[in-house]
Write a protein that binds this DNA or RNA. Sequence first.
DNA 1: GTCTATACCAAGATAGAC
DNA 2: GTCTATCTTGGTATAGAC
Lengths: 185, 185
Amino acid sequence: MAGSQRREATLTAAAAVFARQGYHGATTERIAQAAGISQPYVVRMFGSKENLFLAVVDGCLEAVLDAFRAALDDGQPGTVASRLGSAYRALATEDGVHLIVMQSYMLGADPVIGPVARDGFTRILHFMVEEAGLSESAAESFLAKGMLINTLLGMRLGDQDDPLAQRFTQTVFGPDPAGPGPTDR
Amino acid sequence: MAGSQRREATLTAAAAVFARQGYHGATTERIAQAAGISQPYVVRMFGSKENLFLAVVDGCLEAVLDAFRAALDDGQPGTVASRLGSAYRALATEDGVHLIVMQSYMLGADPVIGPVARDGFTRILHFMVEEAGLSESAAESFLAKGMLINTLLGMRLGDQDDPLAQRFTQTVFGPDPAGPGPTDR
DNA sequence: GTCTATACCAAGATAGAC
DNA sequence: GTCTATCTTGGTATAGAC
């Protein structure tokens, strides 16, 4: 397999593992298994586990911003916020973009991952108000709902056997004209 | 030092470490240092790192619910949501209750921590609608803002050297009559 | 109740062959 | 481009003394 293609496949596999286990919980061995290659080769390709994680996070950030930009130009009806919400929903994939980003956010105290996480969030923030034209208040609501979605995904609230929890999950992820919707569950 | 007192002190130290590093990132050695005792003794007291984490999470959940219950009866002016928000704000301590809870939420895929995290969130949800009397929609807004706050705390957005990010942080944490406010930063 | 010493294992990284 | 073998470290847990 060609280098760049192998690299892509490994990034995808790594994303899925990092999404579930978090940075520290994930092992390069598990990532290697998911990618169908040997553990040392994973390390070899990216230099270190940390570098690999940063590459994954960067890819997710770009994916989110690309999806948002596309949503601004898609000529669909609805408010900007609702179109961005749909884009966020459509972004749902098995490799769990939302969870990767969230995992990086929870590592703000890490000297190397922390700054990257803050930069990424800041870029999204700037996109919201400068490119999408949302008010800062609207951006706050949008991002709050996004964080709620990410959190429910992370904890897998849908697995909870409780009527209220079930209904709540449905409501949050269900078609909602004013915010991000369902993702990868 | 008496057993129960030592236990409490260790739980507090562990909370601070788990809040910053997450479950997998934290080490019992670091917790021991923070508590001023030896690493094996930390393990001895709680049986395992996992048990210790579960004890910390449980303590945080109780702290949140206690604070919320107290806020319902405090006779302060304002809506229920704003009083709960103030309680959330007042809960701010060095040991980072908000981050502990959030770290547990991101471990939903873990076979033992996952169920505990879901149960905890479900209890808060039930409190909101059954004891506090919030509509499910109001509970969603409240929790969304709470998750945004937790996320900003986790990534330490306040450290970001960017005007918009700074302003956003201030807005989210600042006195807001309709949601949770500043916590431990 | 608390420590020191240590066993034991998992995991990231390196060396070097093919 | 990819593997096997292995080094090394760090981290949880146990044993046992004081």
